[in-house]
């Protein structure tokens, strides 16, 4: 329950962090008035605003599919949080096949995006949805292949088991290539800059979400931030030791705070990239996945396998 509660609030925290971090990186401070210090209450104000907005469903839209789409995008990210360990005993469910389950469930949200784009009956929405689908399929492969190398090294699919296996050292030191591939592929899965062609505002307005207003749109935003938390959490477990602290002082601080700190740091990194890199072009993006990341990930798996057999 604690874990669930944390993950229902964390996306909002990340959303707030995005506002503020970007504001300071770009020297445009934005709303600083609400609530006093640094406009902390702006998030509440935004929430109230979203609730008040008119809920518009376009006339040509398929209203059922249109209405269901935000939920289909959102639910997978909530379902992931059930298996992510936040401490040696702090998890909702320790599935044998934890990481495999997580990767499978994240693949569902693309169906929601396709539903949203198609049901809007708007060509920009449809192009955005198709771009998102092509991108998510292309980058799911490197994501899974990068995780496979970690699973091979840990010898288990369970997320708790993988965290435990990193008791002596984190896998970022043995799998730096895997970490790089995983982070890049996560960015693309989240359609975050520099991989945000599906919502490229200069070309297709806001992609699949163009026609959405009010709470439904807020759902998509929450799903995006929930996705950042989810992928940061998975990357923390796979490569940064999850709830394992650093040596010497590791035992002084409970695992929950280690894990939260790592998730926060990775989320900050993801937001940082948005302020740093320009958007890729659609063909560059596809080429990067198929020509660079996937062969690299396959080579990573091969090397991991050979080393594992040799060390044994």
């Amino acid at each position: 329950m604690i874990v669930l509660g944390f993950f229902l609030t964390a996306p909002m925290g990340i959303g707030y962090m995005e506002h503020k971090v970007l504001a300071h990186m770009q020297h445009r401070l934005g709303p600083m008035e609400a609530g006093g210090f640094h406009g902390w209450a702006q998030l509440v104000a935004d929430g109230v605003k979203f609730i008040q907005k008119e809920d518009i469903i376009p006339k040509a839209a398929d209203s059922w599919v249109f209405t269901l789409a935000p939920a289909v995008v959102m639910v997978p990210y909530i379902a992931i949080f059930a298996v992510i360990p936040f401490g040696r005993t702090l998890w909702a469910e320790n599935l044998d096949i934890g990481i495999f389950y997580v990767l499978a469930i994240t693949a569902i949200s693309v169906i929601g995006i396709l539903m949203a784009g198609w049901a809007s009956a708007n060509k920009f929405s449809l192009i955005g949805a198709l771009r998102a689908a092509a991108q998510l399929i292309a980058y799911e492969l490197p994501l899974i292949l990068a995780s496979v190398a970690v699973v091979m090294q840990a010898g288990t699919l369970s997320l708790v088991g993988i965290s435990e296996a990193q008791h002596h050292y984190w896998y970022i030191f043995t799998q730096p290539v895997g970490f790089f591939i995983f982070i890049v592929a996560s960015l693309a899965e989240l359609t975050r800059p520099p991989f945000d062609m599906p919502i490229a505002d200069s070309e297709i307005i806001f992609g699949a979400y163009t026609e959405y207003t009010g709470l439904k749109f807020a759902f998509f935003l929450l799903a995006e931030y929930g996705g950042i938390v989810a992928f940061s959490a998975i990357a923390s477990v796979l490569f940064l030791g999850g709830y394992q602290g650093i040596p010497v002082i590791g035992h002084l601080i409970p695992g929950f705070f280690w894990m939260s700190g790592k998730v926060g740091a990775l989320a900050f990194f993801i937001i940082w990239l948005r302020a740093t890199y320009p958007r890729l072009r659609e063909d560059q993006l596809q080429r990067f996945a198929w020509v660079a990341l996937i062969p690299l990930a396959l080579a990573d798996i091969m090397v991991t396998g050979v080393v594992k057999v040799l060390v044994k």
Binding site: A104, V110, I111
Partner: peptide, 14 residues
């Protein structure tokens, strides 16, 4: 889930 719902059906819809 990953093969049918996640991959094949996404391609179908696509």
């Amino acid at each position: 889930i990953i093969v049918y719902a996640g991959a094949i059906m996404v391609l179908f819809l696509f």
